[in-house]
Amino acid sequence: MTTLDIAWPQMAVLYGLCLLPWLLLGLAGLRLNKTIAISIVRMSVQLGLVGVYLKTLFNLNDPWLNGLWILLMLVVADVSILQRAGLKIRYFMLCTFTAIAFSTVFATGYLVVLVIRPASYFDAHYIVPLAGMMLGNSLQSNVIALERFYASLRKNDSEYLTFLLLGATHWEAVRPYFRMAITAAISPTLAGMATMGLVSLPGMMTGQILGGSEPWLAVKYQIAIMICLFASTTLACIINLKLSLKIAFNSYDVLKEEVMKTP
């Protein structure tokens, strides 16, 4: 089975489907015209660009170019995580980069080298989309981990200092907030795994089936992806939080306010 192409007139028909929710939202008095238009245009342009670069990467299939592309994705993810977590980029850039780079390379490498085992480990068809998926999932989880950890520390600063003043080591004093942040960060991935196939069919599996794969093959790939997403997300969050402790606290274990974006 081959995937049927969607011709341009049919693409126009597809965009026409947006008119229905747009009309209903308008009737409900929600003034979301601009937001809807921006979202649809952004999605189309961004995915169009993805199509262009993936086609180029697949055609060239140069290991160095693939590596460079993954590096670029890591840098963009790094900046995006810190911006959304409310931390100053210049202080945490290196530790967040280390965490997401290590976890992404480790999980993607594990999947490609030990599980999928293609003819070339650096084949763009495998490493670029897989690394992208690992990174996409890590991004959201790292935002949650950093944001929750530092927000709860600041909110409970009296409690944290009480732990220190009662003889706790720095690690013992931050551990309750660390555990809470990691739990919050990996919960969406765990919940996704627990309900997978019951609530909805996963996007990647659906894509593979539409692309002509056997359902069992698609299922195996989906399981492989979910396990690697879980591993890479957990690794990234733990490494990121642990490394950030060295930067965010002074030598007396007091949180440095200057590393936070908001006072």
Binding site: E159, L161, T162, F163, L166, G167, A168, T169, E172
Partner: peptide
């Protein structure tokens, strides 16, 4: 800040470290 649920837990809190 007693940092515990009950008074007994609060008194024993430092001894967990």
């Amino acid at each position: 800040v007693l940092a515990a649920d009950t008074v007994h837990e609060a008194l024993l809190l430092p001894f967990q470290f």
